[in-house]
């Protein structure tokens, strides 16, 4: 499937999704309430078949948080970047994709641990690396006067 066809396909699936072409990989920005629907379609439709979630990244921006899903199709061998953003930065919540790609189970726990994004419907939403009382270190307003020295 060429990038143009992919673009049209995603637009037909979900009109609210914004497809950006011309970057390193095709990028799709999708609202959080449509994330699960689009993710499932992308994985299960044989014409796209994005069955391998390479990487799941969370990032803190000034007024929202973004979660970036790098998908690869093991059938068609193309890569797609799926992005979604949270509505709130203080108490961010997103739907889980761990039932679509099982590998997301660990990755979402990691994002929760380091950024505090809660994934709705995740079977085991515990912290992964840090202890429960720790802050969320990858947030930009995280301060740790003992361990991080500002230069």
């Amino acid at each position: 499937m060429s990038p143009e066809e992919l673009n049209a396909h995603i637009q037909s699936l979900e009109p609210a999704a914004v497809v950006v072409m011309g970057k390193q990989f095709p990028e799709v920005m999708v609202p959080e309430d449509q994330l699960r629907y689009l993710a499932r379609e992308l994985k299960e439709n044989p014409s796209t078949a994005f069955d391998y979630l390479i990487c799941l990244t969370g990032a803190d921006f000034d007024d929202h948080m973004k979660v970036i899903y790098h998908l690869e199709s093991t059938v068609h061998r193309n890569i797609l970047v799926l992005k979604t953003r949270t509505l709130s930065r203080i108490n961010p919540v997103l739907p889980t994709v761990s039932d679509i790609w099982r590998t997301a189970e660990f990755h979402e726990r990691e994002v929760f641990d380091l950024l505090g994004i809660r994934f709705k419907g995740h079977p085991d939403m515990r912290r992964l690396f840090l202890s429960d009382e720790w802050g969320f270190p990858l947030r930009k307003d995280y301060v740790d006067e003992v361990r991080i020295v500002d230069r």
């Binding site: 990487c55 990244t57 990032a59 803190d60 590998t103 189970e105 660990f106 990691e110």
Partner: peptide
């Protein structure tokens, strides 16, 4: 923001 996708992490899952 810099993220490492480490193979061991997914393999462990």
């Amino acid at each position: 923001r810099l993220k490492f996708r480490s193979p061991g992490f997914s393999n462990l899952s």
